[in-house]
């Protein structure tokens, strides 16, 4: 069994109003070191794949087919073996 972890974020070219609002709020709190905030999604998928390579391949397919809207989003994936 593998755990697939997917981090989905808006492309840099796409405006993130939620991230902007949070950034302004952090500035209001005096957190002046904050230069930018981007808010994304995190998805965890348990996979019955045979090996790490096929787990990564399966997870990438899931992302392209459903989890990610590639018009506006990018994603990073990783898999971990679990017992």
């Amino acid at each position: 069994m593998y755990i697939g972890k997917v981090n989905i974020s808006l492309k840099q070219s796409v405006l993130d109003p939620q991230g902007n609002t949070v950034m302004k709020s952090l500035h209001d709190l005096g957190e002046n070191s904050v230069a930018d905030v981007r808010i994304g999604k995190y998805v965890e998928v348990s996979l019955n794949s045979n090996d790490k390579e096929s787990a990564l391949r399966d997870l990438d397919r899931l992302c392209k087919n459903l989890l990610v809207n590639q018009v506006i989003e990018t994603y990073q994936i990783q898999v971990e073996k679990v017992d």
Partner: peptide, 17 residues
């Protein structure tokens, strides 16, 4: 229709959230 790729582009969250 956009998610199904029958029309181009996508509909994002409203700018004012």
């Amino acid at each position: 229709l956009t998610e199904a790729n029958l029309l181009p582009g996508t509909l994002m969250r409203n700018k004012n959230l």
